[in-house]
Amino acid sequence: MTDSYYPKSLSEALELRRETGAIPFAGGTDLMVRFRAQAGTLPKLPHPVLFLGHLEELRQISMDSSGTHIGASALLSDIGVSEHVHPMLSETVMLMASPPLRNLATLAGNIGNASPAGDAVCSLIALDASVVLASLSGERTLLLEEFITGPGKTVMKSDEFIREIVVPADQPDRYWYRKVGTRKANALSKLSLSAMATVHEHRVQDFRAAFGAVGPVVIRRRDLEAQVRGMTLDQLSRETEGIVDAYRPHIIPIDDQRSQAVYRLQASLNLLRRWIDLLMQGG
């Protein structure tokens, strides 16, 4: 029995996925760590893997009227410098991992892994990105927020894999991305904030904030965002502490080997407050 499949085309990949249930393997930088091998031994992968990284049709980054289409196997290093990619996503991607890992890793991997600390997921959710899932039965498109249901959990079926990620063309005017990592490079996130807004004539027309690594999934509260939308900058100024307090109960980090819950909460709220300050200054 083989431990891996190397499809020649997307259609062969879909067939193999249905027939064998092999794990989609794009860049593998998560799988190869999770099932890490010691020298001279094989990775302890529980199932055969389906290599997808080489398929040209999955490596494309393109743009049309609906937005930017990022193939499941496009490398982070290519996404980071692509002119088609929203600058917040470029910044996010270039702060992920390290140059050699970015030459292997993909967005689909970061999404499929569904780690609450997945940096790209945080910015993609702020950008209202969707995931296109392919199977022999056809394709379906879901908002990324709906695709990820818990730590390491997604709604992907056993005959599907991610074909591409779509980032809508229409985005707020301003963004601010802050990753608080364990160090300045090649770092995992202690917390992150992907924030966006449009302010027009002293009024907030759009407001988004997604928090990474401070809950079981990326935290984006559309209900709270709706409360901010429509505020004037004066109102925003008066309501800043109210907004921060409204977010507080939803930011539910844990203590782990990288940081502490109390720090993660405080720093997340401080960044939210800073973002609101930045909007008022730039308004």
């Binding site: 393997f25 593998g28 020298a39 290599f51 290093s77 050699p100 890992l101």
Partner: peptide, 29 residues
Amino acid sequence: GEGECGACSVLKDGRVVNSCMVPVGSIQG
């Protein structure tokens, strides 16, 4: 052995990668 240190770096199609993270079956061609 987990892509953190770079001691295993090689070039794959001209770009540096961690060879401990690369399954050999993925580098056909």
